[in-house]
């Protein structure tokens, strides 16, 4: 199994794959979020056996969830990091900025997407981090408590573009 065979196998699953050998970019884009688990299972089958990072990107119209998977067990895939991306809808647009409360309206609920922890157990803590930073609700994750931030920031999703906060609300003691 090398990178080109990986590309053809994943394209058969219906994903949009771009591979640039020179820049070592391997990108798997899945348009339909409900198919993400199926593509991930295929990737696990092909030898990508662990997740190295889970993150999100906040675009104006969508949030993309990105799992970076890599391989320990297949020698020919050494050094390759495969980005598995899927867009999720942001729901209603944010409200106008309110200078009185210094926020963009009330906190918005987390956005649902399938958790890949049952495919790759190494995504457990990484998905918890992406959950508290971007407000992505990983359905099927066994334990979605906040992991790094203090409880003050839960529900505010600090790494989203519309994040604001009032420092005077926070107290040390």
């Amino acid at each position: 199994m090398n990178a080109d065979e990986l590309k053809t196998a994943l394209e058969a699953e219906g994903a949009k794959v771009t591979y640039d050998q020179k820049r070592k970019v391997f990108d798997v884009f899945v348009q339909d979020p409900s198919r993400i688990k199926q593509v991930a299972r295929k990737m696990l089958e092909l030898g990508l056996d662990h997740v190295v990072s889970v993150t999100g990107v906040d675009y104006p119209d969508r949030i993309e969830v990105i799992w970076h998977a890599s391989s320990y067990s297949v020698d020919s895939l050494e050094g390759l990091v495969v980005a598995l991306r899927t867009p999720i809808s942001k729901g209603p647009p944010r409200q106008a900025y309110d200078p009185r409360t210094r926020t963009y309206g009330p906190a918005r609920p987390p956005l649902p997407v399938d958790s890949l922890t049952d495919v790759w157990p190494s995504a457990l803590f990484l998905e918890r981090e992406a959950h508290e930073m971007f407000g992505i609700e990983f359905r099927g994750h066994p334990d979605l408590r906040p992991i790094l931030l203090s409880d003050d920031f839960y529900g505010k999703w600090p790494l989203r573009k519309d994040f604001t906060y009032d420092k005077s609300e926070l107290k040390v003691a």
């Binding site: 931030l149 203090s150 003050d152 926070l170 040390v172 003691a173």
Partner: peptide, 14 residues
């Protein structure tokens, strides 16, 4: 110090 750590520092100081 993050907010989480500052509370620990304050508790140790007390």
């Amino acid at each position: 110090t993050t907010w989480k750590m500052a509370r620990v520092v304050r508790r140790v100081y007390d």
